[in-house]
Amino acid sequence: MDLSFLLILSLPASIQYAMLGVLLLLVAGSVAERLLASRMAADAHRELRQRINSWWVMVGVIFVVLIIGRFASLVFFAVLSFLALREFFSILPVRHTDRRVILALYLMIPLHYYWIALEWYGVFIIFIPVYLFLFIPFALLMLGETKGFIRSATSYQWAVMTTVFAISHVAYLLILPGDTNPAGGPIGLVLYLLFLTQFNDVAQYLWGKTLGKRKIVPKISPNKTWAGFLGGVSTTMALGMVLAPWLTPLSWFEGLGAGLLIGVAGFVGDLTVSATKRDLGIKDTGQLIPGHGGVLDRTDSLMYTAPLFFHFVYYLKY
């Protein structure tokens, strides 16, 4: 019997059903894309097809690494942090003299994920927001260049905070004791977070397109409306409540709170990256993911939902 099939069968039933449900949604999206082909403008249809095809690849990669195990998953999220940080530096006005500092920031990524592999929560939680935050301005001072010092120090700190520290909380969910979550184990927590985060983005978009009129922050994101925000958060809360007992150690009521947290945090994360792009005068942060833009465009909501959901679950159940 194929090893991958055996690995899938070894997963809890709730995880198997969750993965099957996501695949069915992708199938439905692919079918809808084919049916809408003749009704959409060529450019709009091409973008939709690219988005769905990219979702197939992204979901496939995530499912494979989660099924293989903890080590593969940690490596995957470390690589994701590297790609996100590299993309952030590619859009920032980086000083030529800062190259050695930037190299040091890349090198600290495997070290940070090493703390996760060791299950050393005490170091994990302070390594970047304390020690690395103190290291960055000191390292820049040693270069002897003062022009642009404040902008460089703060932008590098923020880049590392969002792309490495925030995203790494998804990886740390995989390290939490599985016996505390008999329904779905560590993988259940990751699937719950990732699915609700992405679902919230889609729900807010659909509600906004359907009923949205009053804009929230038109100077930052003109497509964000109160109807989209409230409708998306409400839908995410409802889904979070339903899925919580199946994938997490949370009760249905706690799942309602998790859905609220993810809905609001995802909205703020999306807006934050939108504001960054507006400040820099760019449309997308990159072109790595066809139809979606760059890594930051796809992980903007996750940068906020991951650490907040992690601590919500950690202090409630662990």
Rank of each mutant, 00 (worst) to 15 (best):
49 R>K: 14
133 F>T: 13
308 L>W: 09
46 R>M: 11
56 W>E: 08
61 V>H: 13
303 M>C: 05
118 L>N: 14
29 G>V: 09
180 T>K: 14
212 G>N: 03
121 Y>W: 15
77 F>E: 01
177 P>G: 03
259 G>D: 07
258 A>C: 05
4 S>P: 05
55 W>C: 12
252 W>V: 14
65 V>A: 14
211 L>V: 00
302 L>P: 05
177 P>D: 04
164 V>D: 00
80 L>W: 07
7 L>D: 12
244 A>S: 02
285 T>Y: 09
59 V>L: 12
48 L>H: 03
136 I>A: 02
221 S>C: 03
31 V>M: 08
256 L>F: 15
294 G>M: 06
230 L>K: 13
255 G>D: 13
135 F>I: 07
20 L>H: 10
109 I>E: 12
312 F>Q: 02
89 F>C: 04
259 G>Y: 08
29 G>N: 12
116 I>L: 10
61 V>Y: 12
85 L>R: 00
217 V>W: 14
211 L>P: 00
220 I>G: 00
277 K>W: 06
237 M>V: 11
263 G>C: 04
156 Y>E: 04
217 V>G: 08
99 R>F: 03
314 Y>V: 13
146 T>Y: 08
24 L>Q: 11
128 I>K: 07
75 V>P: 02
38 S>I: 12
114 Y>Q: 07
118 L>E: 15
69 G>H: 10
169 H>P: 01
144 G>Y: 03
239 L>Q: 09
76 F>S: 00
267 F>Q: 01
69 G>E: 12
20 L>K: 11
251 S>T: 14
210 T>M: 09
135 F>W: 10
99 R>P: 00
316 L>V: 06
51 R>A: 01
207 W>A: 06
219 K>G: 12
194 L>Y: 02
118 L>M: 15
59 V>S: 08
137 P>V: 06
271 L>Y: 00
253 F>M: 12
5 F>Q: 15
76 F>G: 00
63 F>D: 12
131 Y>M: 11
218 P>W: 11
208 G>H: 04
256 L>K: 14
315 Y>F: 14
251 S>M: 10
112 H>G: 01
229 F>K: 01
255 G>H: 13
108 M>Q: 13
24 L>E: 11
20 L>V: 12
171 A>W: 03
268 V>M: 05
30 S>N: 14
207 W>Q: 03
150 I>Q: 10
80 L>Q: 05
301 S>C: 12
206 L>R: 15
251 S>H: 12
260 L>D: 04
13 A>F: 10
150 I>V: 13
187 I>N: 02
242 V>G: 00
16 Q>T: 10
193 L>V: 05
246 W>G: 11
67 I>P: 07
200 N>L: 09
6 L>W: 13
151 R>E: 15
306 A>S: 06
263 G>N: 07
66 L>G: 12
166 A>D: 04
110 P>G: 02
25 L>E: 10
303 M>R: 02
221 S>I: 08
63 F>V: 13
150 I>W: 10
267 F>W: 04
241 M>F: 05
87 E>R: 03
185 G>R: 06
183 A>R: 08
281 G>K: 00
236 T>I: 03
173 L>Y: 01
309 F>M: 09
300 D>G: 07
34 R>V: 11
136 I>T: 02
229 F>A: 06
68 I>S: 02
203 A>N: 04
302 L>Y: 10
185 G>E: 05
205 Y>C: 03
77 F>W: 10
196 L>R: 00
104 A>L: 15
236 T>R: 01
3 L>V: 15
183 A>F: 02
238 A>N: 01
223 N>M: 09
245 P>A: 06
84 A>Y: 04
